[in-house]
Amino acid sequence: MTSIIERGAATRPIVPPPARKPGFFGSSTGQKAVMAVTGAVLVLFLAGHMAGNLKTFAGATAFNEYAAWLREVGYPALPKRAVLTLVEVVLVAAVGLHLWSAVALARRAARARPVRYARRRRSQAGGYVVHIMRWGGLTIALFVIYHLLDLTFGVANPAGPAATPYARVVAGFQHWYVTLVYTLAVVMVGLHLRHGLWSAFQTLGLGRHRKALQAGAVLVSAGLVAGFLSVPYAVLIGVVR
């Protein structure tokens, strides 16, 4: 004899089921995966960017040639700027999706806790993570705009748009306040990645060796920060001029 047990709902749902299933991009885990993948794209770009910056130490000619080469990678097989434009499109898309996911998750969090604790919730873990990621991320975005105006378009640069890339670098970082702004921003990127790098592995379900990943994230972030800051400080103390 067999008996069938009905699996009924023991509790009444408070939220009525939605008319349409939220799907991958409507789910918290899916949105977080978008953040992890776009974050990884941006990190790869940063690594390349940092390595390229070190060309400054090879002198003005080498650096200016490198900057010109970036505009014509693959030429004449590909049109000039083809590769660069592709990279730009991917980067803009990555930043856009990363931001979308950050906003979606922050809104979810706000809805999930409408009443705050009277006694400030005391962090039992890292603590700084949420602020560094959300507000720190926005700081980075604002910095990127300034950075483009400064060294890409040259309009916010003391040497101006007509100067060579190398001349712009040297003209900017001679001023302590320019170097200071870059320092703050780069350190913020480092803090973002200190959590973000291992977090991305965890989000994509690759985070089984947490301690090792966290240590690796600290190392890679520190390496990026040191690499990015080496050029501004070399200019500031007059090693590069």
Partner: peptide, 14 residues
């Protein structure tokens, strides 16, 4: 979990 209105994980470890 999403439908109930819980937030998304950002790996804070709290």
């Amino acid at each position: 979990m999403d439908l109930e209105g819980f937030g998304g994980c950002t790996n804070t470890g709290e």
